[in-house]
Design a binder for these strands. Sequence first.
DNA 1: CTTATCATTCGATGATACTCGAATTATCGG
DNA 2: CCGATAATTCGAGTATCATCGAATGATAAG
Lengths: 117, 117
Amino acid sequence: MLVVDTSATVQALAALAHETRLALYRMLVERGPDGLPAGVIAERLNVPPSSLTFHVQHLHRAGLITQRRVGRQLIYAADYAAMNGLIATLTENCCGRGSVPLRRARGGPTAAVRRSA
Amino acid sequence: MLVVDTSATVQALAALAHETRLALYRMLVERGPDGLPAGVIAERLNVPPSSLTFHVQHLHRAGLITQRRVGRQLIYAADYAAMNGLIATLTENCCGRGSVPLRRARGGPTAAVRRSA
DNA sequence: CTTATCATTCGATGATACTCGAATTATCGG
DNA sequence: CCGATAATTCGAGTATCATCGAATGATAAG
């Protein structure tokens, strides 16, 4: 059984629990492994540079995005493994053991989660 | 295609992004459909009544738990469909567009999930 | 009606989170 | 070195969240 570091989970959830950061994270997921420089993200989200830094750091500290420098820009990219880890944690701990078959899906990739309340 | 209400997603994430509330939610998931009265939850979490109310309402407003009255006690229970909806939303929007296997639940450690036997 | 129990609401306090302009660090191209 | 660009850190102000005792509402039993 998977044991979870609760505070890491809370940190990841808190990082995503903000309009701006959720939009930012989604933008990076869409963009893929290449990522985007901070400046571009700030412009697209219409957020001043210092505010943008505040939010990307929040996501970075939570381990949800990666950071790398290219020349004088800092590139941020989504860390897919981290999100999958978070989803796995939620699935393992919070999904009503058996009443809802979400963990044993063997068919299509997301077949079991297509239905939403 | 799954329709996503961003602010509802943020609200659900924020509701879970707190040590006490995550513990509370997990307790209700373990307990199952019968749920638990507020008093019992408060005692088990070692939280004063008024603080407990604050947290259960947070989860209830986010739609993650249900509330019903039995006699003079209020019973709270996990709403599994809501959590599955949240997970579906995260999977649809934030997981690298099908390129990433959702199937890893006990692979390598990630930033959000750690072993702590 | 009165008392006891369960839980919530109220209100005051302290703690974090968020925003963003100004100053600072890092890098690049002459 | 110098000027320009990318991004961060700093600091101050505002807002929202969290905690919890005391007061209030809701239900039950005698």
